[in-house]
Simulated scan of single mutants.
Amino acid sequence: MGYILLIFSWSIFYSTHSLFASAKLKRILKAQWAGSQKWYRLFYTIFSTLLFMGIMIQSLFIPVSKFLDQSDLMTYLGYMFATFGTILLVKSTKQIQLKQFLGISAQEKSPHLITTGLYGRVRHPLYLGLILIFLGYVLVSATYTALIHFSCLILYLPFGMYFEEKNLVDQFGKAYEEYQKKVPMIIPKWNKKRGPKPS
């Protein structure tokens, strides 16, 4: 029963993520309530943080049950993936206006398309970092709970990235379409072409 509730909780979390990220919803709110954009993002940040914390607390009450025996190699790889994923998250968030992204910035600045650094290798380094962190957790703990966390993320990401890309095309137009052609979505290509040059 605990696993079913955990899956249900992740379903709510990811569904609300897609809903609040919807460009259509943002346009409706902007038309109905002037100046709502700032409070909208701040509200979503608080809401999603509390919901995520709730899921983590819920996980603590699920009895530990392992799906396979751990080994030193698994543990080593798990920590390596989690560390690399954390580095990706930190480096990618340094390239965006974090305060504005979280909705705590006093100034509203027009967003600009970032195509350099990690974003010149992969369009969604934040998601790639999350995949590695969750995968690392699975390898280190080898529990069914960790496997559900990871599986829900993997199942959601194709839908989440699809809707996010639609919003970005709507926001940046042809510039983002050209960016899509040159830079892979989630699996980086480590070749001599580093992605689009900044305009």
Rank of each mutant, 00 (worst) to 15 (best):
K26C: 13
R27C: 08
L29E: 01
K30I: 09
A31T: 15
Q32P: 08
Q32S: 14
S36D: 07
W39M: 15
Y40I: 05
Y40Q: 05
R41S: 04
R41Q: 08
T45D: 05
F47T: 05
S48C: 12
L50D: 11
I57R: 14
I62W: 07
I62L: 03
I62E: 04
I62R: 03
P63C: 09
V64Y: 15
K66M: 12
Q70C: 14
Q70G: 13
Q70S: 12
Q70H: 14
Q70L: 11
L73H: 02
M74R: 02
Y79K: 04
F81D: 00
F81N: 01
A82F: 05
F84M: 12
I87R: 08
V90S: 06
V90Q: 09
K91G: 13
I96V: 08
I96P: 02
Q97E: 13
Q97L: 09
K99R: 15
Q100H: 09
Q100R: 03
G103L: 02
I104S: 08
S105P: 05
E108M: 05
S110I: 14
H112R: 14
L113T: 05
I114K: 06
T115S: 13
T116Y: 13
L118E: 05
L118D: 01
V122D: 01
R123Q: 04
G129Y: 04
L130S: 10
I133R: 05
F134V: 03
L135S: 00
G136K: 00
V138F: 00
V140L: 06
V140Y: 04
A142T: 00
T143I: 01
I148Q: 00
S151P: 04
S151I: 07
C152R: 10
C152M: 10
L153N: 06
